[in-house]
């Protein structure tokens, strides 16, 4: 499946089916990450049930230093 993650086209293996799978695949599952799929924010409790489809636009953001 091909996704657009943070503006970049990325191909992920077929076993990545949900947001949870995606975070685990990139080893981000214990990071403080916030996920948006097709401009909809996915709450943490929805990670396991939010299915990803080919072409989905995914944003994965976090907190960085700022004033």
């Amino acid at each position: 499946m091909t996704l657009v993650i943070n503006g970049e086209t990325v191909t992920v293996p077929d076993e990545v089916k949900t947001v949870s799978d995606l975070l685990a695949y990139f080893r981000l599952d214990n990071k403080l990450a916030i996920v948006e799929v097709n401009v909809r924010i996915i709450q943490k409790h929805e990670y396991g049930t939010t299915a990803l489809c080919d072409g989905d636009r995914v944003e994965i953001v976090h907190f960085v230093g700022g004033g």
Binding site: I5, V10, H62, F63, V64, G65, G66
Partner: peptide, 20 residues
Amino acid sequence: LTFAVRRMNIFSPEQPNFLE
């Protein structure tokens, strides 16, 4: 403490993050 929200570099998850 103030922070900004930015895209994560998904290809380097080991990068240290102050908040964590």
